[in-house]
Design a protein around this nucleic acid. Structure first.
Lengths: 112, 112
DNA sequence: ATTATTGTTCGTAGTTTTGCGAACTACAAA
DNA sequence: TTTGTAGTTCGCAAAACTACGAACAATAAT
């Protein structure tokens, strides 16, 4: 606990779960995909991508913002959204580490 | 739409959301971490890792199983759980592709 | 001052999730 | 046959999620 452990291979489980939870809805995945590739980012553009009411879109955006995956900026009279790159990369790293943690033994079960 | 598109770079958003949702709880992340590294896998071992009632553990395991991330096998009188490696790798790939989708433009917002 | 535009917030409704104890199942041992 | 062991399922309650329309806020244009 004094030396080279905890370098940065340990993931904050709670934080990983928060990221995952934020990604746990198709609409939010769609929003993230949209923002991650293009980045035109106005609320209206995002709303147009989805078959749901603007109030609902706004809520999903709030959740993504709370999870730290996106950020919004007022550009009157519009609101510009985009990926929060810093946390995006953090999330990417967390998932990478999480899924990499796997090669110690063979599968212990035979498939059902 | 005829040729080299859709090679395998497109992710099923719904499936990705299902994986993410299953991972969207700290207890389930803990379970997955446990099963992914060690794979001793009995229900009781998993239960011991968590400060929650066995009924609750059982429910979390069911969700992970429904999402395809783990599998269980009866080994009377115990139940052996383990990662479903096939879907695990599928999930890994999905997240990889998802997070790789990002380098087209600079950030469009200044951080708040 | 009105009106339009762009989103957010509020109130509400229905569904799902989370968590627990208690009851139950399946098998093995005494 | 009764008792134990190992988990699952049931029934319930509280909380969180999803979605919507309506009302609201902030600014710009008429």
């Amino acid at each position: 606990m004094e030396n080279d452990k905890n370098k940065d291979y340990s993931v904050d489980n709670e934080q990983l779960a928060r990221f995952a939870k934020a990604m746990g809805h198709p609409a939010r995945i769609t929003i993230l995909n949209f923002l991650a590739s293009l980045d035109s980012c106005y609320f209206g553009d995002i709303h147009n991508e989805l078959p749901i009411a603007k109030a609902t879109v706004s809520q999903h955006l709030k959740e993504l913002k709370d999870a730290g995956l996106i950020q919004g900026e007022i550009e009157t009279p519009k609101v510009k959204y985009c990926i929060n790159r810093e946390n995006w990369e953090k999330a990417q790293t967390y998932f990478e580490i999480f899924f990499a943690l796997k090669k110690e033994k063979e599968n212990c079960c035979t498939a059902p």
